[in-house]
Nucleic acid binder design. Structure first.
Lengths: 219, 219
DNA sequence: TTTAAATTTCATAAATTTAAGATATTATAT
DNA sequence: ATATAATATCTTAAATTTATGAAATTTAAA
C-alpha cells in the first residue's frame, strides 16, 4: 500500500511518513505540486496526502491535474478556516480533509477509511496484503496459499503489528477462549506460517516465555 | 478517574472542569507548568489537559518533566497555527492535541479515547521505557534485548524507583514467595541486567546487607 | 466410502536461559 | 593498612523453552 505525501515543509512530511510507515504503508514524498505530478505519472499510489498551500504550484491546481491522470483518493491538509479552498476542493473530488495542526493518528484513520472505500477491506503491512473479501493473501503481489488457521493467524499478527501476543491471546483469538490448546500446537502453526511467508519469514519473532510478535520496520 | 487541567486562564479551566465533572471525572486545576508538576508529584492522574502557552513555565517544558516522573497521557491545548509546537509535542509523547477554540464535547471525547488506550502500557523513567504491549525495553530509543527475568527485574526496579528492594523482596517479586534462591543468583542477574543498561548501568545501587535500589534523579 | 488435506500431538533436537559454585574484587571497620 | 564480610564476576552444568519432523487424528472433499 503506497502513499504520496505532498507538503513544502519537510518536518510535516517526515512526521506523516513516520506514522504511516509504522502502519505498514510505503511512503513517497514530494515538496510541491509539480514534483507531485511527476511522481504520480511514474508511480501508482493508493492515496495522496496533499497540502493546499504550497509554493510553485498550489495543491488545488495539482489535484486537478492529478485527477486527470490517475484515479487516486486524495486527502487534503490545510490551515484552519480556509473555507473557500475546502469547498473548491470537494468540487475537485477530494476524498477527505484534515486541518492543521492535525493528530497523526487521526490522519492514519482517514487514510485507512479512504483506501477502504476504493480498495475494499484490505489489511496491508509492507508488501503483505490480506484481502478479506477475496480471502486471499499476497506477498509482493504473488498469491500465497494459506490454510484457514494460517490465514487467521497471519491476520491476527497483521492486526497487531509490533505487539507481543501471548500464547493465550493467540489461542483465544483463533480458537476461542475455552479451547484448550497445547503450546506446541501453536508452535507448529507458527512454523507452518513462517514457512510460507518468504521474505517475511523472520518477521514473526519468538518472545521466550511469552509468545510471538510480528515485527515490521520501515525500510 | 482523575484529570488535571493546566491553563493560565481560569475561565478555560473552569469550562473544561465543568464538562469533565459532568462526565464523572474528578478534576484538579493548575495555573502554570510549575504548579502542574507539583500536583503530579503528589497525585496520580489518569489524564492531563495542558495548555502550551503559559507564563512561568510553558507547556512543553512541563510535559517533558511530567513524562519523567509519571506515566500519564497528556492532551495538549494550543492556539491555532502553532505548527512547530505541535510536532515537538508528539516527539515528547503527547497523546493528543486540541486547538483553541475547541468544543468541550470534542475534548471529552478525546479524554475518553486517550484514557482508554494508554492505561498501563508504558513505564518510563528518564530515557528508559518499558513498553509492555510490545514487550520491549528501549534506552534513548534503542531497543535493549533482555531475557525474561531481566525484563521482570527491570520492571520491578522501575516500578520502585528510589526504593530499596531487599533480596527477599526481589525473589518474591520475580520467582514467587516460596522460591529459595541463592543470594549469588540474584547478584548474577543484577550483573547481567547492569551490563545491558548502558548509561543507566550505575543506577542500580548496591545496598550492602540489604539488597538493591534503582536510583533516578531528574535533571 | 475413500482420499486427500489440514490439524494436532508426540518425541527429539536445538537453542537459550538460569542456577550455583569457585574465585576475584570491593567496601567497611578496626 | 589489614582483616573480614559482602558483593561481583566468571564458568559450567542443569533446566527450561522452542523448533522441527513425523506420526496420528480429525475434517473436508470427491
Amino acid at each position: 500500500m503506497r502513499i504520496l505525501v505532498v507538503d513544502d515543509e519537510e518536518l510535516i512530511r517526515d512526521v506523516v511518513c513516520e506514522y504511516a510507515e509504522n502502519e505498514g504503508y510505503k511512503c513517497d514524498q514530494a515538496e510541491d505540486g509539480i514534483k507531485a505530478i511527476e511522481k504520480v505519472e511514474t508511480n501508482k499510489y493508493d492515496c495522496i496526502i496533499m497540502d493546499i498551500m504550497m509554493p510553485n504550484m498550489d495543491g488545488l491546481t495539482a489535484i486537478k491535474e492529478i485527477k486527470e491522470i490517475a484515479n487516486v483518493p486524495i486527502i487534503c491538509l490545510s490551515a484552519r478556516g480556509e473555507e473557500f479552498d475546502k469547498l473548491q476542493g470537494f468540487k475537485l473530488g477530494i476524498d477527505d480533509y484534515v486541518t492543521k495542526p492535525f493528530s497523526p493518528k487521526e490522519l492514519i484513520a482517514r487514510i485507512k477509511a479512504v483506501t477502504k472505500r476504493t480498495n475494499g477491506d484490505l489489511i496491508t503491512v509492507g508488501d503483505i496484503t490480506i484481502d478479506e473479501l477475496k480471502h486471499e493473501v499476497t506477498i509482493d503481489g504473488d498469491v500465497v496459499e494459506l490454510t484457514h488457521t494460517q490465514f487467521c493467524l497471519l491476520k491476527l499478527f497483521l492486526q497487531n503489528v509490533n505487539i507481543a501476543l501471548s500464547r493465550n491471546a493467540i489461542i483465544e483469538a483463533i480458537w476461542g477462549y475455552d479451547y484448550e490448546a497445547d503450546d506446541r500446537t501453536i508452535d507448529a502453526h507458527i512454523k507452518l506460517l513462517r514457512s510460507k511467508l518468504g521474505k517475511y519469514r523472520n518477521s514473526i519473532k519468538t518472545i521466550r516465555k511469552v509468545g510471538y510478535k510480528f515485527v515490521y520496520e520501515k525500510k
